[in-house]
Design a protein around this nucleic acid. Structure first.
Length: 591
DNA sequence: GCCGTTTTCGGCCCGACTGTTTTCAGTCG
């Protein structure tokens, strides 16, 4: 775990301890914020401490700074240890149990001496929870249910699984009578690489009731269990124990609810702060003048009886707050609100800006489709070019090409390319970056190719210093145009390489080497935060699919989501270039 | 704990739903 990650975890636990201790909730929120800041940070915390730049970071105050500084120097924090000594460590994981929160955990601890999940389970079975204040039979059953669910609840699913499900549910909602609009919201709308649950927003037309939609929704075939059902909100679980939350609102409030449910939480909190500064209040019903809102009559599930400043569309609400509309992918409170206020948001890349795919395989190595089939599929997707980049010889398991086979393959690619209209094939290779940074082919072999992707496939657990040298060596090779899936991580499966990002980004920018956003799930490598830091260092990105079949080319959509979350414009991405520009990019490095 | 053209003290985002409650606390997002 990196130092940033360790500290982020430390503050996450510190916030949890505050919650359980029943400290001021804002204290816990403050620590949570520090945890999030450290998780998102692409800065090197150690360096920030050494250079004294920690205090420039908003949200990190004197107390947190003291903890960070001591931890960086000594690997521990006395402040943290002092708090941790007062609360049993076993209580922290209990916070992950659905339906069980900090107040109840503290109650169980103080009144029944329960200090771990195991003890909780035993206490329930022994009937020891009865007669606690506020603890009825239903509540005990809820906690029991939560215990049974906890493994599933902590499980996140990938965007490639969640997106089709979410889009299908939204489409089913749109077909219900009285429904004006339905959209996916939540982290899925922000295109996070994984999601913990699904959020949907449904707008009903005037005169139509939310009850009917709620009733119809719980009858959808995907619904396995209903957890809560009101006229404004329904929570269900699918057969796979994925939670789906639906909000139902009158259409004139659709934008406010969509915005609220899209989040992120940090983004929303920041916006509500802005609203307050303007003597307004922002909630899922809309943006209201504070004095009018306070006077207005309110009842659960119904819009407050006040005229909102804005509510119908997201754009109106952002504008009323003095902001440009913010793309959902940016809503992480990573500077997008400040940028929106300054009209300095990037024009995010879109799928239609992509002119070609620069990393794919054919049946010459481990792909399933032929050169012709891949070329036709690329043409069908409107591409101007396609680089065919089969594996190099070390990838025996992937039927990697020897230099001899590669030369023949390249000739074949060029022959087919010259017979095609509307698309150019680039004869390339995905050459292995060996553990020591040597490439799997000599320069003389690479020099014969039009395009080279160099990727690490093995030795993905080597120490950071070695990994840094390894990648730098590949970056500095004049024939290497893209570093493919630079870390080699696989979501949920392996962490991949850690290396000195700053150093590698700097070298990539200086040499004219692009870094890949590999759109093949579960790679998504670089990830959003890394890719954004690369862009900030002046690096170009290459958004590719690593397709092993014609259908694999469709993963470009996912790759573009990651690029958008990295704040990338089309000009930041080499396969947003025309073929002529791309050839210049390649030639420039070879000079 | 953090922050400041509204504040160095006193605020800090806000509502829906459930359960145990006779008016609210806890959890969730």
């Amino acid at each position: 775990m990196s130092l940033n990650a360790e500290l982020s975890e430390l503050f996450r636990i510190l916030a949890a301890l505050m919650d359980i201790k029943g400290e001021n909730v804002f204290k816990a929120m403050a620590f949570s914020k520090v945890s999030r800041i450290l998780k998102d940070a692409t800065i090197d915390v150690k360096k920030a401490v050494e250079e004294g730049t920690l205090e420039e970071i908003e949200g990190i105050g004197a107390s947190s700074r003291r903890v960070i500084e001591q931890y960086v120097r000594t690997g521990k924090s006395e402040d943290f240890d002092a708090v941790a000594a007062t609360v049993p460590a076993g209580l922290i994981p209990m916070l992950e149990i659905p339906n069980l929160g900090p107040k109840t955990i503290a109650l169980l601890w103080k009144q029944r001496g329960i200090t771990s999940i195991d003890e909780l389970a035993k206490a329930i079975d022994a009937g020891k929870l009865a007669e606690l204040p506020g603890m009825g039979e239903k509540k005990i059953q809820l906690i029991k249910q939560g215990l049974a669910l906890r493994t599933a609840a902590g499980k996140r699913i990938g965007i490639v699984t969640a997106l089709p499900l979410g889009e299908m549910l939204a489409e089913q909602l749109r077909h219900l009578s009285g429904v004006a609009a339905a959209e996916v919201a939540g982290s899925l709308r922000r295109r996070s690489e994984t999601v913990g649950d699904l959020d949907l927003v449904c707008a009903v037309k005037k005169g139509a009731g939310g009850e009917a939609v709620a009733e119809a929704f719980v009858e959808f075939p995907q619904v396995h269990r209903v957890q809560a059902k009101g006229a404004a909100k329904v929570s269900i679980a699918t057969a796979d124990d994925l939670q789906v939350d639906l909000r139902i609102v009158p259409e004139e409030h659709f934008g406010a609810t969509l915005m609220y449910l899209t989040g992120s939480k940090a983004h929303n909190v920041h916006l509500r702060g802005l609203a307050q500064a303007k003597k307004m209040t922002l909630n899922e019903w809309g943006l209201y003048e504070l004095d009018q809102y306070e006077k207005a009559k309110k009842s659960p599930g119904a819009a407050p009886a006040a005229k909102p400043v804005a509510a119908k569309t997201e754009r109106e609400i952002y504008n009323a707050l003095g902001l440009k509309w913010i793309e959902p992918e940016l809503r992480e409170d990573r500077g997008e609100i400040e940028a929106a206020a300054a009209d300095a948001l990037p024009k995010l890349i879109e799928l239609k800006d992509i002119r070609g795919d620069l990393h794919c395989h054919t049946n010459a190595s481990d792909g399933r489709s032929s050169i012709e089939q891949m070329a036709q599929a690329a043409l069908d997707r409107g591409y101007e070019y396609l680089a065919i980049t089969d594996h190099s010889k070390t990838q025996v398991i992937a039927n990697g090409l020897t230099a001899q086979r590669l030369a023949k393959h390249a000739a074949e690619i060029r022959r087919i390319s010259s017979s095609l209209k509307g698309i150019t094939l680039l004869a390339g290779c995905e050459v292995d970056i060996l553990a020591d940074g040597r490439l799997d082919f000599e320069d003389a072999v690479l020099a014969e190719l039009d395009f080279v992707v160099a990727s690490p496939h093995v030795a993905l657990k080597q120490p950071p210093a070695k990994a840094t040298d390894r990648l730098l060596r590949a970056v500095e090779n004049r024939y290497v145009n893209v570093i493919g899936h630079p870390t080699g991580r696989l979501i949920f499966e392996r962490e991949g390489l850690t290396f000195d990002f700053e150093k590698v980004f700097k070298a990539a920018a200086a040499t004219g080497t692009a870094l890949e956003i590999n759109g093949a799930y579960p790679r998504l490598d670089l990830n959003d935060v890394q890719a954004r830091a690369a862009l900030a260092a002046g690096v170009k990105l290459s958004v590719d699919t690593d397709a092993h079949s014609t259908e694999g080319l469709d993963d470009m959509r996912i790759g573009v989501f990651v690029a958008r979350r990295a704040w990338a414009s089309s000009r930041d991405v080499i396969n947003g270039m025309t073929l002529g520009q791309l050839r210049q990019f390649i030639a420039h490095k070879r000079k």
